[in-house]
């Protein structure tokens, strides 16, 4: 079985209101040094086959898991 980790991020130019809310709260707690918080959504893909599934993992990430209009993603093999 092959495992892949897919992380989906909002592109840097897209405002993430959730990230900003967390950042503002932490700033108010007296930690102004925190510059930014990037949030990603992590998916673990598990494949049955023993053959290399990297291409399939890439395809699943680009077709379903990320919307290229506003998001980017990374795929890495973890097992």
């Amino acid at each position: 079985m092959a495992k892949f980790e897919v992380n989906v991020f909002l592109k840097p130019e897209v405002l993430n209101p959730e990230s900003r809310a967390i950042l503002e709260t932490i700033h108010r707690q007296g930690i102004p040094d925190l510059k930014d918080i990037k949030i990603s959504k992590k998916y673990i893909l598990e494949f049955e086959s023993k053959t290399d599934a990297s291409a399939l993992a890439q395809e699943i990430a680009s077709t379903y898991l990320a919307n290229s209009v506003a998001e980017s993603f990374t795929v890495s093999k973890i097992d």
Partner: peptide, 11 residues
């Protein structure tokens, strides 16, 4: 249709 719809800026 082009573009996408994200979370409201107001949260």
């Amino acid at each position: 249709l082009p573009g996408t719809l994200l979370k409201n800026k107001t949260r």
